[in-house]
Amino acid sequence: MLDLQGIAKHFGGVRAVDGVDLTVKRGEILGLIGPNGSGKSTIVNLVSGLFPLTSGRILFNGDDISDLPSHARVGLGIARTFQNIRLFGQLSVWQNLWVAQNSRLQRQEMFFKRWFGGSAGVQAEIGRTLEFFDLAHKRDELAANLSFGEQRRLEFARAISARPNLLLLDEPAAGMNAEEVDQLDARIRKMRDEGFTVLLIEHHVELVMSVADRIAVLNFGRKIAEGPPAAVQDDAAVREAYLGTR
């Protein structure tokens, strides 16, 4: 589904991402881990189109999307969350989701309904998403007034409400306590069951080991290992990157 071919991003002399090949298959959860500064978040930013590639190509369902603007990539079905929460604070919870909805459902709507609050179908879908993220009781609250945990869930919900084919999760567990991480774990599994494809960038190694089908490991902008969780865990290069040489 997503095919990164030798992508690189250099900031001046810093090679944040330095020639990475990576493939995400339909329906899988691919975990991307690595020490601080290894280039994980840069890869998410490149895939979502936040800044241009230095070299390489990004293919999505076989099409080259390297030069498409961000909003067009969302239109193709690539959605993301942010490590640092970026909600629309003065919009209510359900309005945050409505803005993000540009699904087929939305486009088929009559002009009037599309512009004035959405049909029963759109409202029902927003309701389901809010239910799934345990936010239904906060539907009309301003996003700025939510607690930290609720804002994280809303951001997750906003990414889902675009009905993406591919979901990029950038450090979703950052700042969460153990209980919240467990809930997150359950939600990500449930989303795979519903057919989402997920690229999960995460510091929390336990979470990635638990939910990912495959794991790729980055260090200094290069991929040093890739494979099933158990195999990656025992990889010598990975142990060296995380623990240092003995």
Partner: peptide, 19 residues
């Protein structure tokens, strides 16, 4: 709403699919 989203956070608006 789209307009107010753009004002609140142009980058995030772009990344949820607002042109």
């Amino acid at each position: 709403l789209g307009l107010r989203a753009v004002i609140a956070n142009p980058i995030a608006a772009n990344l949820v699919g607002v042109d």
